[in-house]
Simulated assay, not measured.
Amino acid sequence: MTSTPLSSKNWFPKASAGLVLGLGLSLALVGIVGLLCHTNGDPRSPASQYLMWLVAPVWTAVLGGCFMFRTGWRAWGVLGAINILLWGVYMGLRSVIS
Rank of each mutant, 00 (worst) to 15 (best):
G77A: 10
A75H: 00
T2M: 08
S48C: 02
L6D: 05
R44S: 13
Q49N: 02
P13N: 08
R94W: 13
M1N: 11
V78G: 01
L85H: 09
G22L: 10
V58E: 14
Q49L: 05
G24K: 00
M1E: 12
V55W: 05
A17H: 02
Q49G: 05
C66S: 15
P46A: 05
G34N: 07
T4Q: 12
S3V: 06
M91W: 03
R74V: 05
S8T: 15
L54A: 15
V89L: 05
P5G: 10
P43E: 13
I84Y: 07
T39Y: 10
M52R: 10
V20P: 00
C37S: 10
V33L: 14
L85Q: 07
V78F: 02
L35E: 12
I84N: 03
P13Y: 07
N10M: 12
L29Y: 04
A47K: 04
S45F: 10
L23A: 08
T71K: 13
V55D: 05
P5S: 12
V78S: 01
D42H: 04
G64R: 03
V30I: 15
S45W: 10
W76A: 11
Y50F: 15
V20Q: 01
K9L: 05
Q49S: 04
G34Q: 04
T71N: 14
A28F: 11
V89I: 09
A61V: 08
V55E: 04
F12H: 10
N83L: 15
T4M: 09
W76P: 02
S8G: 15
A17Y: 02
S98C: 02
H38L: 00
W76K: 02
L27S: 06
W73N: 04
M68E: 03
S45Q: 13
L19I: 07
R44C: 05
C37Y: 06
A61G: 11
R94P: 06
